[in-house]
Amino acid sequence: MAALDPPQAPGLSTAPTNLLSGAARLFDYWAILYKRTWKGSAISSFVTPLLYVVAMGVLLGGFIKGDPAKLDGATSYLAFVAPGMVAAQAMTTVFGEVTYPVMGMIKWNKSYFGMIASPLAVSEVILAHLGFVIFRVATTCAVFLAVMAPFGVFTSVAGVFAAFFVQLLIGAAFATPIYAFTAGLKDESAFSLVFRLGMIPLFLFSGAFFPISNLSRWMEALATVTPLWHGVDLTRMLTLGEVDWPLAAVHVAYLVTLTLAGWFWAVRRLSRRMVS
């Protein structure tokens, strides 16, 4: 039998010194988990954007001869819809990542309970998980942007890179509040409503596929307060190279505020759930 060493002098096993150093200790966990699962998501994250671009952009877009003035300055429907689809993809990725998987770690396999029995705090556990979600948004959207590039829908390289970082912000703005919502749920039955009444209407009516000026007045007003519209509009400004700076600042401020509000709500709700 292997003899175990006696308890060590304090110092080798320690409490994290701050939120980031605590979350960083979970890096290996998420990396190993991703290594086990990435192949399954790799093909779909390449094929999905291709299908969207061909179906919505090229085939459907072929019937649409919009006036560029009505398409936020896009020269073709494809150029108009491409940034919308990327932003919508950032959102749907987040919906997938912070509903069932989060519920699983709280309720089904209880991995979170193992984590907080270590020196890690609830906030560090959340930050690491959200970090992984943003990483998923980054890989998905990077592939999406790369797949669309040959279709000539981007006006500048800088614009594409800026649009890429905006996707991370959109991801964060959806991730924190939905994570918080999930953190307090008793079971998964609410998720189908979240998808049907939350994600799908946002997906369809936030200006990703047509200008929100096509909507009736009150619906247009409603669309301008949804996070996806802010994300879509910001992404589109960048890919089309027609940036309205004051409005862009409003979009960024909106998404940052939502991210932070969701963050505090998430920490509060999960702490309440797990530390009793």
Partner: peptide
Amino acid sequence: VCPQEDTLDTELTVRDNLYVYGRYFGLPR
């Protein structure tokens, strides 16, 4: 802490369960 209900990561191997847990304590790889 050995809790009453197992909180192991069912999606990881036996070795990885121990490995990732050690990392939570700030131990070098």
